[in-house]
Design a binder for these strands. Structure first.
Lengths: 344, 344
DNA sequence: TTGTATGCGTTATCAC
DNA sequence: GTGATAACGCATACAA
């Protein structure tokens, strides 16, 4: 079913059909109607490859999907939101994988140079920064979820981890805690450092002591359990943990056991609000990232670059929202109503 | 960088360049070498849109990503495996979303009729079967993860849930349990029924009674907890639960509390081996689906259909593997070494 | 307002 | 073994 067949059916030239679709104002209403009817009847849809060839654009956004690791609670939500937003903008999401960094860079180049995608969304910005520089050098449109180390490299959307941990602390303070430990990754990585800093400054704001209360380890179960127990065994032990991820929170809670009343000995707040948070007993309070918003901005910034190449990089910082869950499992707080905290 | 530029650089016609790439035997070795060098030097890669247009194929596989629900532990692994396998075969994975069934069918049609994708992988076969029939009617290549109700509709790859639950029962029996309950979805859905049947027949094989031990409810936390407690309160109560999913297992374990020794009152085995299984204390044993194998077969079957349209549908049933975890968190069992249990 | 001509980059067919 | 020509389906500049 081609444009020519439609033209023939409608008794016009194929150019007129094209005009009806791409420049409706240039065609007489009556003719347009007739053409539209023919289009409808024949179920005509413009061929994608031909259009792409002509317009030198694929209307595809590339996304490298990394091998799943950890609780990995964000990826499915992010991908869905991304696909959804891309689609609203007439684009599609193209998934690819790469085992090594070299393979990944080769894949990026291949996808661009063959015209398979118009640009990229980067997700695991923490680990790989070469591709950002590569995109930057070659003028490839891209947006990263997570603020890159080299800020000028490309546009980004991030979620303010410090604000998230501040909410965790506020929440725990409101529930009567004064000795609140932090449990997260060792310093040196953007995400973890952000959250740690958030905990620290919120504690300071509440005039609470943080000395010796910052626990750091990988997300390995045994390690987390050990660190949690060590913190709990301090002379003036913490009664609550503000955690860098749900993994830390879940393991820490279980590692420190239950008190006399059967409730967990410590109260924990997680991060990312993975689906499992609501399954725990008692349910886990957790900081939720506004993934839909992230995806919306990511797509918006990417489209802007498609439209105006060489556009100055822009950063959007979004605010997460704590989902507080009481013992009965009811969620309080207002997730979803998050707004950009800052645009630079 | 087009094929013509390469031709000019190599001092041949562009057709010769094309031949070097697509029919190397038709060109003299010396010329081929010269052309290849030019290709290398100029970094030429054939334009995708032009090739797609010419070959009437997109080398893209469509996949509808549904809004995340539940623990959703398989999707990220599946997508990665799918992208990986598709890529090895020179294809890409194109993600799209659809809010309603109508939207979804419209999306399928759009993607096919515009030539954006060559075929589809269906994942949530349980709920939507119209699209399978639609693909069947229109001769659209597709493979579904999960055996469809109407078997002839399209090729499929599935994981034998009955075999999975049988392993759960065997495992629990080996650990000394005799009263083993099942906890899963109400009857009426393929996946749940498979697993329930697996539990029932394994129990029968062990000559164990199943009367009143089949608990059924949705994955809602409160419901699961209630059913678990009800089962546990039976006159001759179960000491273990073989569960239809990790959600059931996690909630059931927590809902039934701990015994005098501080260990969970009941032993549970989950299904899907979500990442959180290893985080639980004690770690959760769970049935693991061989997702990589699934993806491999899915892509293989799809490619076969691309090559030979109208190919007879084929089904592949794979065996899951229980990941047994003892109290120390060490995994035993041999996940990953799964083999096709049957091909029809 | 409508139609004609051309090119996007590739591959296939067919002469040479 | 190599090269000219055509065609894939669409969109744009330009002529009518």
């Amino acid at each position: 079913m081609t444009i020519s067949e439609v033209a023939e059916a409608a008794g016009v030239s194929r150019q007129t059909v094209s005009n009806v679709l791409n420049a409706p104002d240039r065609v007489a209403p009556a003719t347009a109607d007739r053409v539209r009817r023919a289009i409808e009847e024949l179920g005509y849809r413009p061929n994608r490859a031909a259009r792409n060839l002509r317009e030198r654009s694929s209307r595809c956004i590339g996304f490298k999907i990394a091998p799943p690791t950890g609780l990995n609670t964000l990826l499915d939500r992010f991908l869905h939101a991304l696909a959804d937003n891309a689609e609203s903008a007439g684009h599609h999401l193209l998934l690819f994988s790469a085992a090594t960094v070299e393979e990944e860079l080769a894949a990026y180049e291949e996808l661009i140079v063959t015209g398979t995608v118009d640009g990229f969304v980067h997700a695991d910005v923490e680990t790989i920064d070469e591709r950002l520089e590569w995109c930057d050098r070659n003028g490839i449109p891209c947006v990263s979820f997570g603020r890159p180390k080299s800020p000028a490299a490309c546009s980004w959307v991030d979620v303010d981890g410090a604000a998230g941990l501040a909410q965790s602390v506020d929440y725990l303070v409101a529930r009567g805690h004064r000795r609140i430990a932090y449990l997260g990754w060792p310093e040196g990585q953007r995400v973890g450092d952000q959250r740690l800093a958030g905990w620290r400054s919120a504690m300071r704001r509440h005039r609470l002591d943080t000395g010796g209360l910052a626990g750091a380890c990988s997300e390995d179960v045994a390690e987390v359990a050990a660190v949690a127990r060590r913190l709990r065994a301090l002379p003036d032990p913490p009664t609550a943990f503000a955690c860098g991820s749900d993994t830390f929170a879940i393991v820490a809670r279980q590692a420190t056991g239950t008190g006399a009343d059967g409730h967990p000995a410590i109260e924990v707040v997680g991060y990312d609000d993975s689906p499992v948070a609501a399954l725990m007993t008692p349910p886990l309070s957790s900081v939720r990232q506004p993934i839909d918003e992230v995806a919306r901005h990511v797509v918006r910034l990417l489209l802007r670059q498609f439209g105006a190449p060489g556009h100055a990089p822009e950063g959007v910082m979004l605010r997460p929202e704590l989902v507080g869950r009481d013992q009965a499992g009811r969620a309080h707080g207002t997730p979803g109503k998050t707004e950009p905290a800052a645009e630079q």
